[in-house]
C-alpha cells in the first residue's frame, strides 16, 4: 500500500527541495519552490491523516529491515495530526512571508532563509514520525541548527547574541538527552521505542535509581529545548529579535515538536505504570 510511504515522501520532498535551492539564481523561483513543496507535503500529510483515521495506526519500515534492526516510523492518530498541523501552518506562514520577507532580511540571504525553513519543517516531521530514539536525536539537532539559522538570518547585533545563547543552552539540553539515551540503551539494549518499552517493563525493578535519573535527564534536556518554565531563559531574546515570520514558526511549531517528543518518550518508552510511580508529571504540569 503506497499511502503508507507518504510520511517519508513528505520529509524527502522538503529536504531534497532544500538541497536544490542554492543552485537556483532567481529568488522568486525559490519562494515558489518552497511554497509548492510545503503545500505538497501538507496534502500528503492530510491523506495520511485520513488513512490513519480509517485504518488505524501503522508502522513503516525505512529500508527493508525489521523493527529492532532497522529504523521505523510509527504513525498513529496524534502523529498524523501533528504532521498535518506542522505542514499546513508552515505553508500558511511561508505564504505570508513571501510578501513581507524583503522588509526584514537582506536580499542575498533570502534563498538561505527558505532553505532553512524547509529543512526545519522536514526535521520536525522526522521527530514527529520516528519511532527510534537515536533517529529522533539526529532530527532534534537538525531542527536546532535550522532554527538557530532562521533567527540569525536578520544579521543585527541582538540576533547574534540571542542565537549564541540559544545554541549553547540547547547544546547543553541535547547533551543531557544523549546521556539519557545512553542510560536507557545500557539497561534495555534497544533503541526502538516499542522494544525499549517491552524491555524496560521487565527490568525497571532492578534499576529503580537509573530509571528515575533517565526520566530526569530526558525531562530537563527536552525542557530546555521546549522552554518549559524554569528553563526558558533563552526564549524571550530569541523570539523577540527574530524576523516576524521566523518568530511565528518558532513559537508555533518548533517548541511543540520537542513537547511531542517528550510525550512520546514518557508514554511510549516508559509507559504509564512506570511514570505513575514517580512525581514527574506533577513537576511538568505544576499540579501538586
Amino acid at each position: 500500500m503506497y499511502i503508507r510511504s507518504f510520511p517519508l515522501v513528505a520529509i524527502l520532498i522538503l529536504l531534497v527541495s532544500a538541497f536544490v535551492m542554492p543552485m537556483i539564481k532567481k529568488r522568486s523561483i525559490v519562494k515558489g519552490l518552497s511554497l509548492v513543496s510545503m503545500g505538497i507535503s501538507s496534502i500528503l500529510a492530510l491523506i495520511t491523516l485520513v488513512y490513519v483515521k480509517e485504518n488505524g495506526s501503522f508502522i513503516y519500515r525505512i529500508g527493508h529491515w525489521d523493527a529492532p534492526w532497522g529504523i521505523e516510523f510509527q504513525i498513529g492518530i496524534i502523529e498524523a495530526m501533528m504532521g498535518f498541523l506542522f505542514t499546513s501552518v508552515a505553508a500558511l506562514i511561508i505564504w505570508y512571508s513571501i510578501y513581507s520577507i524583503h522588509k526584514e532580511i537582506k536580499d542575498n540571504r533570502v534563498v538561505f532563509y527558505y532553505l532553512l525553513v524547509n529543512i526545519l519543517i522536514g526535521a520536525l516531521l522526522g521527530i514527529v514520525f520516528s519511532n527510534d530514539l537515536f533517529n529522533s536525536f539526529v532530527f532534534m539537532e537538525l531542527s536546532t541548527l535550522a532554527s538557530c539559522g532562521i533567527i540569525v538570518v536578520k544579521d543585527k547585533k541582538e540576533n547574534i547574541k540571542a542565537t549564541l545563547k540559544y545554541l549553547v543552552l540547547s547544546t547543553l539540553g541535547s547533551g543531557l538527552v544523549l546521556m539519557g539515551i545512553a542510560f536507557l540503551y545500557s539497561i534495555t539494549g534497544h533503541l526502538n521505542m516499542t522494544f525499549a518499552h517491552r524491555e524496560i517493563v521487565k527490568v525497571y525493578a532492578d534499576y529503580g535509581q537509573t530509571v528515575l535519573i533517565t526520566l530526569g535527564l530526558f525531562t530537563v534536556g527536552l525542557g530546555v529545548k521546549s522552554a518549559m518554565f524554569p528553563l526558558h531563559t533563552w526564549l524571550p531574546d530569541a523570539h523577540s529579535s527574530a524576523p516576524s515570520s521566523s518568530s511565528a514558526l518558532l513559537s508555533a511549531l518548533v517548541l511543540k515538536g520537542f513537547v511531542l517528543l517528550l510525550v512520546k518518550i514518557l508514554y511510549r518508552v516508559f509507559g504509564t505504570e512506570i511514570i505513575n510511580q514517580f512525581p514527574i508529571l506533577n513537576l511538568i504540569l505544576i499540579s501538586f
Binding site: 538557530c148 547574534i160 549564541l164
Partner: peptide
C-alpha cells in the same frame, strides 16, 4: 562538529 562550527562562526 557541525554545532561547533556554527558556534565559532557566531563568535
Amino acid at each position: 562538529v557541525s554545532v561547533t562550527a556554527f558556534a565559532l562562526a557566531l563568535t
